[in-house]
Design a protein around this nucleic acid. Structure first.
Lengths: 145, 145
DNA sequence: CTGCAAGCTAGAGTGTCCTCTAGGTCAAGA
DNA sequence: TCTTGACCTAGAGGACACTCTAGCTTGCAG
């Protein structure tokens, strides 16, 4: 995420640095998810700069947090257009942040349910493997676990 | 999630109750993601019971928290086999819980980065829309935002 | 008894996000 | 120079989790 500001990096180096595959990097470029065009060597090979790597780091975070590529592209578009549309960038990020909060809440709820179930199993294991667990007999009022 | 233990429910009612589409419910059944076969009416229509609805509620939580269907199927298989494999169920849930923790951590990190970026934009908006933001000129040492 | 919403099946289609392939080219060490 | 590994493009392929379609049946309200 922090790289020498003057050096140029090959696609392989970048892939390693940001934890994506070279395939994915080329795919992102094709899909216009990067800001500014990536420079090329005389022979046509990509030469990424520190800025590109920083941006890819941000991309990774946004993706990991569930931002769809379409929205990431929108964000990249806005940045590519240069200063003047900060309000829209802000809206986009705010919307995403709301999504992230919601997802954290959902995950925490799931965590509790899992913990509860885990507990049920641990107790059954301690008690000797078969008490009130579900069983395809007596189709009424039994636990599912 | 808590339903009358004796009543039977149509697929539409269940879909509404658990927040899935009827398509998804049929799909889950085909894919063996449900425990026990769903009962049918004389005419062949599904009649879900409270147990099924409970299980679907758990499915929803596990899915929301990122458990792949293959693993959910594995879990359903274990339950279908009846008591005796609690240790394996526990392993499965523990593994998933670890995944959930990791995802929560990742989301919280992302949240901070987003908050920081949001801040940058807010400041720029307050300061008058164009200071040190990225601009396709002077390709060195500038912020990306 | 008629109408019509809701249900049925098997299988094809969709959207998302990469990943891989084929058929080459480039670059750097021995 | 030769070899080897990394890189190139355009497009096909694939995993995942549904979602929809077509053609038909059920079942309840009027």
């Amino acid at each position: 995420m922090e790289a020498d500001s003057r050096r140029r990096y090959t696609i392989g180096e970048v892939a390693h640095a940001v934890g994506m595959s070279v395939h994915a990097l080329r795919f992102y470029e094709r899909e216009q998810l990067l800001i500014g065009p990536i420079q090329r060597s005389a022979g046509g090979q990509r030469q990424y700069g520190a800025v590109d790597i920083d941006w890819l780091g941000i991309c990774t975070r946004l993706r990991e947090s569930g931002m769809p590529l379409a929205e990431l592209r929108r964000f990249a578009d806005l940045i590519r257009q240069g200063p003047g549309n900060e309000a829209e960038r802000l809206r986009l990020l705010d919307a995403h942040q709301a999504r992230v909060e919601k997802q954290i809440a959902a995950l925490e709820e799931a965590r509790e349910i899992i913990a509860w179930k885990t507990n049920v199993y641990q107790q059954h294991l301690r008690a000797g493997d078969a008490s009130g667990l579900w069983d395809p007999t007596a189709p009424q009022d039994d636990q599912v676990t």
